[in-house]
Nucleic acid binder design. Structure first.
Lengths: 197, 197
DNA sequence: TATTGAACAATAATCATTTTTTGTACATTT
DNA sequence: AAATGTACAAAAAATGATTATTGTTCAATA
């Protein structure tokens, strides 16, 4: 079975990659608001006109950068998931990878520089939709393994997993401490097996 | 069984209520940023000094207003819950009440005037913690009725319910359409009964 | 004794102005 | 063909002077 890829843009185009790399670097350093197309052009050593050929607006470019970030996250997670067996283990792993990215990656910088922007993203349905297609396959595997009820609507479970995982990444501790892998694993194991014993 | 109250401040103090009412009215109209202590004093027909006697800072006052809003939400929900039997029905109701508040109430105004502020609240653990103590009682009832596994950790389930409900209030539609009571009810019914048939 | 209102320095918001950036067009270069 | 660089009007952001707000204190008032 070939490893799935979560792509949308043609990342083999070196010009496109240069734009995205430069843009990402700028966002890391200055945040989205304080990053200008001219600055991105300077950092990427290309012309402003070229950027506008690939992305019609700054908004579209930012969207492209976030998109790639999320796709990269999904691809790295997917690669690691091969070692995990149960759905609870998979979701645990995805949350841990997400939290690490949120500390060290672009979103982490954004959280420090422009927390309101990050908070707004978190309320944006598009942000969630990009992750939705990741889960159905794994949910079906869990159903085939008898891990969860085979009658359950796969898309509903995927929706719940995305909501829960996003919440656990963005708000790691509220009432219960869900910091360690073990605590998370236990939490998800219980949540994904709710119902009569 | 007496109906529970979710209180913290002494709402029998008319001065306190006048401050909170005036503050809430200002936030509804202008948002948090554009509301000043002087304006609240004017609207509430009291002195700025009095406000500072009750709330040391503007931040504390805003916290008090939000607190009362959430407590009011919980009290109204609690009252309505008496008609609902299953946990899925109760959570459905809470989400529907929450969504209505989010459209018509103070948070709705805030969503229009200062969306970033509302988004930041949604990432604040305190916002969640205020709702956490609401659920354990109902979860135990569901366990007693054999609706969910009696072995499950009550606090963990409460945590999940709060995360899921908050997400469904703030992001009503992502992949699946969860707009109607019926769709929500079915979603939650399946989610709260995850596990082998 | 609680509330008021005035004074105050430090901080933050506002506003008009200047500067930068955006998005588009097009002639030039590679 | 694709990328560059310049020009341009409209929109947005940085700037700095000005005004308002915050949080504290305290004497006056109810």
């Amino acid at each position: 079975m070939p490893r799935r890829q979560f792509n949308a843009l043609d990342y083999s185009d070196p010009m496109l990659v240069r734009i995205l790399d430069a843009g990402e670097q700028c966002i890391r350093r200055f945040g989205i608001r304080r990053t200008s197309m001219g600055e991105i052009a300077r950092v990427g050593k290309l012309s402003r006109g070229s950027i506008y050929r690939y992305f019609g607006t700054k908004e579209a470019l930012v969207e492209g950068i976030i998109r790639r970030q999320q796709q990269d996250f999904l691809n790295r997670t997917e690669a690691k998931l091969e070692q995990e067996s149960s759905l609870a283990d998979k979701v645990t792993l995805a949350i841990l990878v997400g939290r690490k990215d949120m500390q060290e990656g672009m979103f982490g910088s954004l959280a420090e520089i422009e927390p309101e922007t990050l908070a707004m993203m978190f309320l944006d349905p598009r942000f969630y939709r990009r992750s939705l297609s990741f889960w159905p396959q794994h949910i079906r595997m869990a159903q085939a393994a008898g891990e969860i009820d085979a009658e359950l609507d796969v898309d509903l479970v995927a929706d719940m997993v995305v909501r829960l995982a996003a919440s656990l990444v963005m708000v790691p501790r509220m009432g219960v401490q869900l910091k360690t892998r073990k605590a998370l694993r236990q939490y998800l194991q219980q949540m994904l097996k709710l119902g009569p014993a």
